[in-house]
């Protein structure tokens, strides 16, 4: 990917809000949350929301790191591996009770949900996204 800062943020919001939400709708009922469906959806969508909000902040950091690259590109692998620190941070926030409206979220349920969502979003960003949005890849990932 060859993102600009605003392209990063727009792509992050769009993909999590659209692809992430669809996937969360599908997967939540089968997650081992041990809670009611309504509570499970509350938890998984909260995860999605936190990933999105924090993600916008992360993007500033990534953009900064990108400045040290001669090509000013963002290798495909980076897009995948940044899921590790992001996932860990979100998990610590949930496990540490920093998200007041969520009581508890079992680790396995979180892991399955987060990892699968991250993978799908990453896959879509690395190809299929260009199909409907033909200008997206030459506009640094901007949609508007």
């Amino acid at each position: 990917m060859l993102p600009t800062l605003s392209g990063r943020i727009q792509t992050r919001i769009f993909l999590l809000a659209v692809v992430g939400s669809i996937w969360t709708l599908i997967i939540t009922p089968v997650l081992p949350t041990g809670a009611s469906l309504a509570a499970s959806y509350g938890a998984t969508f909260s995860v999605l929301l936190v990933v999105l909000v924090l993600g916008v902040l992360w993007e500033f950091l990534y953009h900064g790191i990108q400045q040290f690259r001669w090509e000013k590109d963002w290798p495909t692998l980076f897009g995948l591996l940044t899921g590790i620190p992001e996932g860990l941070l979100v998990w610590f926030l949930f496990a540490g009770g920093a998200i007041p409206w969520i009581d508890s979220l079992p680790g396995p349920a979180f892991a399955i949900h987060f990892v699968s969502t991250w993978l799908i979003v990453w896959l879509v960003a690395n190809g299929p996204m260009r199909v409907p949005f033909i200008h997206w890849r030459i506009n640094g990932g901007r949609l508007i």
Partner: peptide, 30 residues
């Protein structure tokens, strides 16, 4: 400068393509 440093060694300047990659869509293009 530190933010604009291209790899090089043994006589050659190294770059994947004929321009830095982000001219085809990213930051440098903009």
């Amino acid at each position: 400068g530190i933010l604009k440093r291209r790899k090089g060694a043994d006589g050659w300047a190294y770059q994947g393509f004929n321009y830095p990659k982000s001219v085809w869509g990213g930051q440098l293009k903009q």
